[in-house]
C-alpha cells in the first residue's frame, strides 16, 4: 500500500502574526515558514505505518510556489520516500487543493491519504473532507488514533462530545488531530540523504485543475483589542471586583 501525505507550507506557529498596514494580507516577508503542524503529524503517522510493515511507500505532496520544496525536503528528511510539488503562484482554496490532490490520487492510487485537520494559516478545516467527497471515499477527521486491519481502519476521533470511534473501508482519507502522535525530529544525516530523494514538480494546469477562486478576500484586519485589564493584590480584592461586576453571587 502507498500512503499519500499532504504538507502545507505555513507561517510557523510561534510567529506573532501582523496584518499589513494596507490591509492586503499578513506580513510574511522574512518570517519563519514551516510544515503545518497537523501535516507533520500526518507524515509521522504514515511513517509509523510503513515502519510497522503495513505500507511500502510514503509520498509527500505539497501545493504552492517553488518555496514549498523546503517543506517537502523536510518531509523527505523525516522519512518520506519521494515528493511531489504541484506548482501554483496564486493562493488556492481548499476545494481547488482537493481537486488537485484527487488528480494525484488517480495517478498514485494510495490506500490511505493523510492530511492535517486544518492549516494554521487559513484555519479552514475543509480540504480532507472535500477530497473524500470528490473521491467518493470514507473520511475520518480529527483522528487521535488509527488502527489498520487488512482493508479496514478503525479511527478514534476527537469530537466535542468526547472520543468517537468509526470503522472505514480503505482507501480512505484521514485528517489528524494533535494527539495522534508526536512527530520525530529530523537528524542531520537524514537531511543529507533527503537531497538525493526524488522530488517531482508539475503544475496545477498540467493536472487539468483551474485556479478559479469561489471566494474573494476583500481585506485583512487585526482583531479588536481587549481593553487593558487590572492586577489585583489578593483573593479578597479579586472577589470584590467580580462581585462589583455582578459576575459572582
Amino acid at each position: 500500500m502507498k500512503i499519500l501525505v499532504c504538507l502545507k507550507r505555513v507561517v510557523d506557529y510561534n510567529v506573532r502574526i501582523r496584518v499589513k498596514p494596507d490591509a492586503s494580507g499578513v506580513v510574511t516577508d522574512g518570517v519563519k515558514m514551516s510544515i503545518n503542524p497537523f501535516d507533520e503529524i500526518a507524515l509521522e503517522e504514515a511513517l509509523r505505518i510503513r515502519e510497522a510493515g503495513d505500507a511500502q511507500e510514503v509520498i509527500a505532496l505539497s501545493i504552492g510556489d517553488a518555496d514549498c520544496q523546503q517543506q517537502l525536503r523536510t518531509g523527505l528528511a523525516m522519512g518520506a520516500d519521494r515528493a511531489i510539488l504541484v506548482g501554483t503562484d496564486t493562493a488556492i482554496e481548499p476545494l481547488t487543493a482537493a481537486r488537485a490532490i484527487l488528480e494525484i490520487i488517480k495517478r498514485e492510487e494510495p490506500g490511505l491519504v493523510i492530511l492535517g485537520k486544518q492549516a494554521i494559516d487559513d484555519d479552514c478545516n475543509q480540504t480532507g473532507q472535500m477530497l473524500a467527497a470528490l473521491w467518493d471515499r470514507p473520511q475520518a477527521t480529527f483522528a487521535s488514533k488509527l488502527q489498520l486491519a487488512g482493508d479496514k481502519a478503525t479511527i478514534t476521533r476527537e469530537v466535542d462530545a468526547g472520543l468517537e470511534q468509526i470503522e472505514v473501508d480503505l482507501p480512505a482519507v484521514i485528517t489528524t488531530d494533535l494527539r495522534l502522535n508526536e512527530p520525530r525530529y529530523v537528524k542531520l544525516p537524514d537531511i543529507m540523504k533527503a537531497k538525493k530523494k526524488p522530488l517531482e514538480s508539475l503544475s496545477l494546469g498540467e493536472l487539468g485543475v483551474t485556479e478559479t477562486l469561489g471566494l474573494q478576500i476583500e481585506d485583512y484586519a487585526s482583531p479588536p483589542e481587549r481593553a487593558k485589564g487590572i492586577m489585583v493584590g489578593d483573593v479578597t480584592e479579586l472577589l470584590s471586583t467580580l462581585r462589583d461586576k455582578d459576575l459572582i453571587g
Binding site: V26, Q216, A221
Partner: peptide
C-alpha cells in the same frame, strides 16, 4: 478569523453561487 484569530478577513461570495 484566520491565523488562530490573529487576523480577521472579510470574504465575499460572487452572485449566482
Amino acid at each position: 478569523p484566520i491565523y488562530a484569530g490573529n487576523a480577521i478577513i472579510t470574504v465575499s461570495v460572487p452572485e449566482g453561487s
